[in-house]
Each structure stands twice: as structure tokens, then as C-alpha cells.
Amino acid sequence: MAVYNSSSSLTCPPSNIHIEINAENGDITPSLVACRTASQKWSIIEATSSDPSKPHQMILNGHSSKDELLNEYEQKLEDVRELLNSEELQNQIESLMLVDAIQRLGVDYHFQEEIEAILRRHYVAATTCVDGYTYYTLHNLSLFFRLMRQHGFCIPADIFNNFKGKDGTFEGKLKQDIRGLMELYEAAQLGIEGEDILDEAAKFSGQIVGNRLKHPYHKSIARFSAKKYIRDLQDINGWEKTLKELAKMDYYVAKTAHQQELTQISMWWKDLGLVEEFKQARNQPLKWYTWSMASLSDPSMSEERLELTKSITFVYIIDDIFDLYGTPEELSAFTQAVKRYETC
């Protein structure tokens, strides 16, 4: 079991956040413990019951063996791929809902080609037909707009003018469409400078549903919010059950990979010896790794996450050297050396 402590490096709060991660099932248990010292950092502590030199085992999640889990995992991937390629969903709005669910569950990296094909069909259909956008409801148009912009398709913001009244403001009757307003709020997060209508949309929808969307999808990390989305996903369209099962398996497969990587980073950091050399510097391998995990979410990018984490580590250490250790003369010489290196 890995144990993480969080506390300020400058002052000692009344208590520390103490988090235990169960290596068997991945459950996270937060609790409060007394603060020990003012210099304590957010760090990884090796519990006596675990051996960090041993890799984490695959979390089987009810399966009798790793092979059984992986076989079923591959089958679920194929089932979802067949859903995405289904002729019944070719140009229906339900295909966009399926793409959205896949993204929110953090498993979209498996289906990039299929998702691109679906979105391109919708884009062509909407942009080549006369009044191609008018048949959408507020929810459907907002979902269409958000997905298109997220994937680089050029969709004008003025398509939302259809939902404005003669006075140039969004129609009051839309206030009853909570589902549509929530999606409009999400879509408005992808506005660019000068698109006043999206600013108006964000303000209009935010006044009604803003408290329910403190973390819009475009400004959050799917891997961190997937568990909640799995709980909220309703079995309405028939494909939700298959998608839920895949998402749960993918979650455990990815979790195992992240645990193994975190173990490697912890051992690398310990072997580096800088924690002993700079005792006042930050000792936060979990935090440094989290940056990489958030920015490189594809589980297959393990080497990239490890290397990026190491680079981030040195950014923090250099920052601490400037703040805590170096004299002005030493820091000036160090800065000049870096500048010379950059110009080589």
C-alpha cells in the first residue's frame, strides 16, 4: 500500500491530508493525521507492508486471471468499435452522444479513426445542406458544436442565433430545457475572441445551470471524472451497458499502468539522492507524475510520461535552488550558463 502525505512547505496547518491507496483494488481512502513538522512535504511514504521494488499486479476486478480480464477487455473494445461502425448510427444524433460518452469515459484513444469518421460525416451533412443546422434541438446543436470544435472542425458560432428571439437575446422558454442549457454551457467553453454570442450563451446558461457545471468537460480531465460519469450514465440507448463495462476494465488497466509508473518514478527519485542533498527542497514525486498523467493520458505512452515527469522534477528542484539555496552570485552564474547552453 502506498501512502501519500500533503502539507505546506512553509507553514504547518492543523492537519495533513493523508491518503492511502490500496494496491489490491485501487481504492483511495483519505483521512486526517496530525502535522509532524513544518518542513514536511507532499511525499510518498513506503508502507512497511509493501515492497516498492515489486511491480503492481494487474487489478483483476472479479476476473480469475489476467488473461481472462484482457480477453474480455479486447472483446469489449471490439463491441464498441462495432457500435461506432454501425449503419444504424451513421448520421444520427445518437452517434454524437456515443462519441461524447466515449470521450467522457476516457477511452476515446482506442477509437480515434472511428470517431473522426463519424464527426466528418456530421460535418459534411450539416455544412452542405441548406439550413443544415436548423433541425437540431438546443442540446443536439450544442453537442454537435462542441464535438466539432474539439476535433478541429470549423463551425461558426452564429448557428446559435436560431435560439434567439426578436430582441436579440436567448429565448426565455429555453430556461425550461435544463439538459439543453447544460450542453450549451459546455459548448460555450470553446469560444474564441470576438464570438460574443458564446459569451452570451455562457452567461445565459450559467445563471441557470452553472452550479451544476463547475468543471466543464473541456476544462477537466476525463480520467479523473470517468468514475462519476459511469455512475451517472443511464441505460437509455442500448449501448451504455457495453460502454460502461469497457470503461470499467479500461480504468483498471490504466490504473495498474499508472501505479507501476509511479513506483518507477519513486525509485528513480530515491536513487537520485537529491532528497538527501537538498533537504529543504520539495519531495513530491506524486505531484510531478500527476502533471504527466494528466497531459499524456493514453496508457500506451508510458515512456513519455516517465521522461516528462523527470523533466518536471528538475524544474521544481531548480526553482527550489533559486528560492532556498543559491546565493545571488551563484544563481547569476547558473543563469548565464543556461543562457549560453540555449544559444549553442
Results as ranks from 00 to 15, higher is better:
1 M>V: 11
2 A>D: 11
9 S>D: 08
15 S>D: 07
17 I>F: 10
18 H>R: 09
23 A>N: 06
23 A>P: 01
23 A>L: 09
24 E>W: 00
25 N>C: 00
26 G>D: 03
27 D>W: 12
30 P>Q: 06
41 K>N: 15
45 I>W: 14
46 E>M: 05
48 T>E: 12
50 S>H: 13
51 D>K: 13
52 P>F: 15
56 H>L: 07
56 H>C: 08
58 M>Y: 10
59 I>S: 00
60 L>A: 01
61 N>A: 14
67 D>W: 02
67 D>F: 05
72 E>N: 06
72 E>T: 06
73 Y>S: 01
75 Q>G: 03
75 Q>Y: 00
79 D>E: 07
80 V>K: 09
84 L>A: 01
84 L>R: 02
87 E>I: 03
87 E>S: 06
91 N>M: 02
92 Q>N: 11
95 S>F: 06
99 V>Y: 00
100 D>I: 09
100 D>S: 15
106 G>P: 08
107 V>N: 04
107 V>R: 03
109 Y>F: 13
109 Y>E: 02
111 F>E: 03
116 E>W: 09
118 I>Q: 02
118 I>S: 02
120 R>I: 12
127 T>R: 05
129 C>E: 12
132 G>P: 06
144 F>L: 08
145 F>Q: 12
147 L>Y: 10
152 G>R: 10
155 I>K: 14
156 P>Y: 14
156 P>C: 04
157 A>H: 03
159 I>D: 14
162 N>L: 14
168 G>T: 08
172 G>P: 04
172 G>S: 11
173 K>T: 11
174 L>F: 05
174 L>R: 13
175 K>D: 07
175 K>H: 02
176 Q>D: 11
179 R>Q: 15
187 A>N: 13
192 I>Y: 14
194 G>F: 08
195 E>P: 11
198 L>G: 13
199 D>W: 14
202 A>R: 14
203 K>N: 10
207 Q>R: 10
209 V>I: 05
212 R>H: 15
219 K>A: 15
221 I>S: 00
222 A>R: 07
228 K>I: 11
229 Y>R: 01
233 L>E: 01
236 I>W: 01
236 I>K: 13
241 K>T: 15
247 A>M: 02
248 K>I: 15
248 K>A: 02
254 A>E: 08
256 T>E: 02
263 T>K: 13
264 Q>Y: 04
267 M>D: 04
271 D>P: 01
273 G>V: 00
274 L>C: 05
275 V>R: 10
280 Q>C: 11
281 A>L: 07
284 Q>N: 12
289 Y>A: 06
289 Y>K: 04
291 W>S: 02
293 M>Y: 04
293 M>A: 01
295 S>F: 13
295 S>R: 04
301 M>A: 12
303 E>T: 14
308 L>D: 04
308 L>N: 08
308 L>R: 07
311 S>T: 00
321 I>S: 01
323 D>S: 00
342 E>D: 05
342 E>G: 02
